[in-house]
Design a protein around this nucleic acid. Structure first.
Length: 499
RNA sequence: GCUCCGGUAGUAUAGUCCGGUCAAGUAUGCAGGCCUCUCGAGCCUGUGACCCGGGUUCGAAUCCCGGCCGGAGCACCA
């Protein structure tokens, strides 16, 4: 009782039955047909974290055995690896199932010869009727020699696509029809992006996955609960082979409010041009989150918080922003970005000013951004954000942050006129004057911020921002946190993360 | 339709296995206040939840039964 109360302080609960295994080995087994998305981050982070916690190993296994229905993409193998590295989930071992076909064949033959599997040549429709009635199909009870012979015909091309399939024997009276005599290998002649036409018989998910979990000595399988039935199916295979099934943690699915996580929908949108790419800010891919400046630490923290329960979780962008803000706030430098700029003409400035604004309000030691305001006959022009127009009113006070106070004279079409009032910040406070950010005329670098809905906001930012390195997350004061995407084209391109 | 899994505040999570310490904790959100030359951060206060109905029990978020709602699976996909 006491013990249980302590352990949840932070981090993950202990893994069940660790003592069953010489080493904790977890695996993530994606189909390389798209980059990773937020939903997949849950099992990944859990697997990696547990491997770390128990000084075990984390294995990446590409499950690319469906050349047609879920065709692998040659680029996706690398995308996935990059996504994992970014998430700080570098795998300790990597396997590709399309390299391991012979291994699956070997086990198929063993199962066939020991009568644990059979080659079924029934019409799928017909088989369906039979298994719903809990009846064996005519192939099931044929002798192993016949099945081995048929197996040869699958391999040598005597059978065509759809004419034969290897099934694993299970309990035909199992209450769940889905587990009865499930298919293990089938004929598929579509060329594979990695192995071309070398193989015509391909294992199905439950077969290759189950074999590999054993071959790779996986101790704990952490996967989405949509695989619950698959776990039941695979246990039959382990029984036939005399293996012990690993521990299984079935975790709920993660969805993200307003974002599309479905690979097929994303692909359709990317192909039709609805999205700018797999990293369109509207998408929930890891690529997209990364581009928006979401930090891997934030994703990891979120996933660890979700934990290992079989409950589906719907995260909001607010949840993500909150987690990310915690990571990014203490280390993001502050700069001014004037969105939708309008001209501010100031008169009556008594002398030069050299405002110095901190790069981070809580870290004065980081230094300052220094400006120089040199009025000519008391006049100087600034740019301020059109979004701040709502704060301005003729006759009212206004403070330019870190500079001086003004009295607004006229709010006109695209131009605001104001008179110098005073310098002390305290006066702005007592006046209740709004504080706004600004840029001296001539200082601004053209800047475009890509917003979460893929719309863009144009404006000006401090010239020194052009020296920032891509990937840096900064805060545009009073605007929000953004990630610097590109500075090479003379325009600063940034992606908006959140406020 | 059949099979399985879930259901704690807007969202997420702790507690459920081993009933009392839970008139339910935490984070985020929201509202208000303080602080601060950002609409950031920080601090304080408030807000708000055990799906429903029975049962067992001195006592149920926790156990049992029924219902309702949600999700997943029922592919020669992964």
């Amino acid at each position: 009782m006491e013990r249980r109360r302590e352990r949840r302080e932070k981090g993950l609960p202990p893994l069940p039955n660790v003592e069953r295994f010489p080493e904790v080995r977890t695996r993530f087994a994606p189909n390389p047909n798209a980059p990773l998305h937020l939903g997949q981050a849950r099992p990944i982070v859990l697997c990696k974290e547990y491997a770390r916690m128990y000084r075990g190993r984390f294995i990446l296994r590409y499950e690319d055995t469906s050349p047609d229905v879920k065709a692998p993409m040659a680029e996706a193998y690398n995308w996935i690896m990059e996504d994992l590295r970014w998430l700080d989930a570098e795998p300790d071992e990597v396997y590709i199932q399309s390299d391991r076909i012979e291994i699956y064949y070997k086990y198929a033959e063993r199962l066939l010869s020991q009568g644990s599997a059979y080659v079924c040549t029934c019409d799928p429709q017909r088989f369906r009727e039979l298994y719903f009635a809990k009846k064996p199909c005519p192939c099931r009870d044929l002798p192993p020699e016949t099945h081995l012979e048929r197996w040869g015909w699958m391999l040598d091309g005597t059978y065509g696509e759809g004419e034969a399939v290897v099934r694993i024997k299970t309990d035909l009276s199992h209450p769940n029809p889905a587990v009865r005599d499930w298919p293990a290998l089938r004929i598929k002649t579509t060329p594979h992006p990695r192995t071309g036409a070398k193989y015509r018989v391909w294992p199905l998910y439950n077969f290759s996955c189950a074999i590999d979990d054993h071959e790779m000595r996986i101790s704990h399988v952490i996967r989405g609960k949509e695989h619950l039935v698959n776990t039941t199916r695979q246990r039959y295979l382990y029984q036939h082979l005399g293996w012990e099934y690993p521990e299984v943690l079935s975790v709920g699915r993660v969805s993200l409010e307003g974002a599309i996580l479905s690979k097929s929908k994303i692909r359709a949108g990317v192909e039709s041009g609805l999205y700018t790419g797999w990293d369109d800010p509207r998408l929930g891919t890891l690529m997209a989150l990364r581009r928006r400046g979401i930090q891997p630490e934030a994703i990891r923290a979120l996933m660890i918080e979700l934990g290992t329960k079989p409950i589906n979780a719907t995260l909001t962008w607010g949840n993500i922003a909150a987690a990310n803000r915690r990571v990014v706030e203490p280390r993001a430098r502050r700069y001014f970005f004037v969105a939708n700029p309008i001209r501010l003409k100031v008169r009556g400035i008594p002398h030069e000013f050299d405002p110095r604004l901190p790069l981070h309000p809580d870290h004065p030691e980081w230094g300052t951004r220094d400006f120089k305001i040199t009025p000519i006959e008391g006049r100087f022009d600034f740019f301020i954000s059109g979004d701040d127009l709502r704060l301005l009113e003729a006759g009212r006070g206004l403070r330019l942050m870190g500079l001086f106070n003004l009295r607004v004279q006229r709010v006109g079409e695209g131009v605001v006129e104001a008179d110098y009032l005073s310098e002390p910040y305290s006066e702005a406070r007592s006046l209740g004057a709004p504080l706004i950010h600004w840029l001296p005329e001539g200082e601004g670098a053209p800047t475009r911020v890509v917003m979460p809905d893929a719309a863009t906001v144009e404006g000006l930012s401090e010239r020194r921002c052009m020296d920032l390195k891509p990937d840096t997350v900064i805060q545009f004061e009073r605007f929000g946190f953004v990630r610097v995407d590109d500075v090479s084209g003379g325009t600063l391109i940034a992606y908006f993360a959140h406020r």
